[in-house]
Every structure is written in C-alpha cells, then in structure tokens.
Amino acid sequence: MRVRDLLTAAVAGALIGYLGAVLFYRWFPPVVIWIGSSLALIALAEAGWAFYVRRKIARAEIGVGGGRLDPLAVARSVALAQASAVGGALLFGGWAGIAVFLLDRASQLAVAASDAPGAVVAAVCALALSVAGMWLQHCCKAPDDPLDDPFEDSEPAEG
C-alpha cells in the first residue's frame, strides 16, 4: 500500500465528509466524544497483532505446528492491514471534513461547538487505524535472505 493511495482516499473522504455535513448536518445525531473509540480499540488490537507477527517472523516461527504461526494467518493479516489502512484513511478524511465544517461554525452554533471535539477525536482514531494497518503490513514482510540476493554473485569476480 502506497502513501499516495492513502492520501487520495483521505482527500476523497474529506470531500465526502464536508459535503455531507453541509447538506445533512441538521439531521446528524449528536457527535459525542466516544464516537471514535471503536476505531481506537481496533487500531490497538491490530498494532498488538503486528508486534506478535513481527516477533514470530523474526524468530522463524512461521509454519504449521505447535507454537508456530500459520502462513495463511500472515497472508490474511496482510489483507486486514490493507483494508484497515484504506478504511482508516477514508474515515480519517470523512471525520476531518466534518470537523472542519463544525469548527468553522463553532462560534455561531452551540451544537456545532459541542459536536466538534467528538469529530476531532474520531478523526484521530481513524488516523490511528490507518497507521496501525500500515504497521501490520510492514510487520508481515519476510526477512531478507542474504543467500537469495539476485544481484550478488556466488563466485568471486576474476580480476
């Protein structure tokens, strides 16, 4: 997953969030401070899993058998990581767009002032989910094997 793709998703989410707030804010339920807590919990769980996978890969404990991490679990972790990174980026953009809308109107509308902190917290939690997804994806990489370097000659050069 490239950062450019995540930035594109975040910008798209911000446009959708801002326009959605402009058009439909009067029908929004209250944006409480805990609204992003589920995203934060998922991000923490995913980061913890990333450290576990990283340790298993570093110790070469990947494979089938007791105490080993199934390679299919690592492959599924990569899929989860990519989905979390993109979903987190979209949600970050959406909540950031809503937060910009609310912060812009906070001095005029008391309800916007009370909703703004919840939107900011949700945006930060969504960003944490995206970062956790990128970290998990990074941790699922196989270590470099110096014996498999295609650019290194196995025989000494004549000279």
Rank of each mutant, 00 (worst) to 15 (best):
L109W: 15
I57H: 07
R2H: 12
S130G: 15
S84H: 12
A122I: 07
V31Y: 01
G36C: 05
V31S: 01
L90P: 09
L103D: 03
G159P: 04
C139S: 15
G13V: 08
G20L: 03
P29F: 00
G67W: 03
D153T: 08
A81Q: 04
V31T: 02
V74T: 03
T8R: 11
F28H: 00
V11Q: 07
V32S: 04
A126I: 13
S130T: 12
A14K: 07
C140P: 04
V32C: 05
A47F: 14
Q82A: 06
A43E: 12
L6A: 09
S37G: 06
A116G: 07
V31M: 05
Q82N: 11
S107R: 14
F92Q: 10
L72C: 01
W95D: 00
G97P: 04
G67H: 01
A73K: 01
L103F: 04
A106I: 02
K56I: 02
I33E: 04
E46N: 08
D145N: 15
G48N: 07
W135T: 14
E61P: 09
A123P: 08
G88F: 09
A10E: 11
S37L: 07
R59F: 14
D104Y: 10
R4A: 15
S114L: 03
A14Q: 07
A14S: 12
G94F: 12
S130Y: 11
P156V: 11
Y52W: 03
L7Q: 03
P146F: 09
A73R: 01
A9C: 13
S130L: 11
R76Q: 02
C139Q: 15
L109C: 09
G36Q: 06
G87L: 08
Y18D: 00
A12L: 14
L147Q: 14
L69K: 03
S38W: 06
P29N: 02
M1A: 12
L127H: 13
R105A: 09
V124S: 13
P156W: 13
F151D: 13
G93D: 10
P71L: 03
A83F: 05
S37W: 05
G94W: 11
E46S: 05
W49M: 02
K56E: 11
S84I: 08
S38C: 06
F92R: 08
L80N: 00
R68Y: 09
F151P: 01
I16Q: 04
L6E: 11
A58V: 08
L39E: 08
G17I: 04
F101Q: 04
F24E: 02
I16Y: 08
I98C: 03
C140N: 09
L72P: 03
F28E: 02
R55E: 10
S154A: 14
V111G: 02
S107A: 13
A89Q: 09
D149V: 09
Q137V: 04
V100H: 02
G17P: 01
